[in-house]
Simulated scan of single mutants.
Amino acid sequence: MSAALIETEGLGVSLGGSRILRDVSIRVARGEIVTIVGPNGSGKTTLVRLVIGALRPTEGAVRRAPGLVIGYVPQRLAIDHTMPLSVARFLAFASRDRAARTRALAHVGAPGLERRQMIDLSGGQFQRVMLAHALLRRPDLLVLDEAAQGLDQPGTAAFYRLVETLRAELGCAVLMVSHDLHVVMAASDRVICLNGHVCCEGAPMHVSAAPEYRALFGHGTGGTMALYRHEHDHAHGDGDHAHHHPRAPEEAEEEA
């Protein structure tokens, strides 16, 4: 087994009197794509903030490989529309090397955008620029928190294909949070199902069949599950719907 880039043990967080995460132990090794899925309020963004060091755990520990470099693409980035900010200037926060910035934009499929204003970019262009910014750090671990949020289905699929390509080219690991279950299942080596604690984890095919996963996503997402089944060309029997519900978190959170 490859050495872990990030490993958490017995991680727990309480904020404002609410227990958001408890006993969360995960591991991300070099070169793998690991995706965290879970309902709203399940603690996904909180876990990401713990991994990147933006939040300290109430209990447990986060261990990072020595010298680990993390590239982070957040859910959203608030930009002041009254203040001009070109793509070139935004990327300069990550690197002063103009040639490196040009290469990064080309690498993510967004060449020639240097002079464009960030606020004028389309959703897909914006996310690719954000990804270029993260890549300029030469990360060992790329962390994506709902990075494809707001993109349409073809745009989302294209974005995750790009992530897979970058993983292969750079040899970095990827830890991502996503609601796009069918795309995630196609793109991930391993899936972690979170609902205040780790409900289940493993290879996508195994997680999608787990009772805990079905209890969270098996109802009300028929289109997503059907698309996933179709893409992977397999069917389930009449016992599809799970009746085993995972233990809910002690108190719900509003995702940070």
Rank of each mutant, 00 (worst) to 15 (best):
H245L: 15
V34K: 06
G155Y: 00
H81L: 15
A158W: 00
G202Q: 13
G223E: 07
V13Y: 02
P39C: 04
V13L: 11
Y213D: 08
I6Q: 03
R56S: 13
G124Y: 00
E9L: 04
A215D: 05
A78Q: 15
A242W: 10
A110S: 07
S122Y: 09
M185V: 06
A65P: 08
H230A: 14
R98C: 07
T8M: 02
C172A: 15
D23I: 04
G171H: 13
L15N: 09
R115A: 15
G10F: 00
Y72S: 02
I192M: 09
D180T: 00
Q149K: 10
E146C: 11
P74F: 02
S2H: 13
M130A: 09
D152I: 05
E59K: 06
V177Y: 04
L166I: 10
A29G: 14
V34N: 07
V108N: 01
P246L: 01
F217M: 08
R27M: 06
L227P: 10
P249N: 05
R190Q: 09
R229V: 06
P249W: 01
R63V: 07
I70A: 05
A134R: 00
P211K: 01
L50A: 01
A148D: 06
G150D: 02
G60I: 05
L144E: 00
A88D: 14
D140M: 03
T165E: 11
V69R: 14
S86D: 08
C172N: 08
G155F: 00
E32I: 05
V207W: 15
L151C: 04
D152A: 13
V87L: 11
R30T: 15
A88Y: 03
H236V: 12
R101G: 12
V207Q: 15
Q153K: 09
P74Y: 08
V73Y: 09
E114I: 12
T82G: 02
Q127K: 11
P84F: 09
H133P: 03
V183E: 04
L181Y: 05
L142E: 03
A215N: 13
G171K: 03
A209S: 11
G12H: 10
A65M: 07
G60F: 03
S122D: 00
E254C: 08
G31M: 04
V13K: 09
R30P: 12
G112L: 12
G60N: 04
G123M: 02
V62M: 12
P39A: 04
A61V: 13
P139Y: 02
L162R: 00
D140G: 10
L105D: 05
A173S: 12
A3L: 12
G220M: 03
L121D: 12
A147N: 01
R89M: 12
A252L: 08
I70K: 01
P139W: 00
A3M: 10
T35G: 14
I26T: 10
R89W: 10
S2F: 10
T165C: 13
A132L: 01
A106L: 07
R116I: 03
V108Y: 00
H245F: 08
P211D: 04
P74Q: 11
F90Q: 01
P74G: 12
Y160E: 10
V48I: 14
M130S: 13
I119L: 11
R49H: 09
A92K: 13
L166F: 05
A110F: 01
V184G: 06
R96C: 05
A61H: 09
V191Y: 14
I26D: 06
L47H: 11
A173E: 11
D120Y: 01
P66L: 04
C193F: 02
A187W: 09
Q153R: 08
G237R: 02
T224K: 07
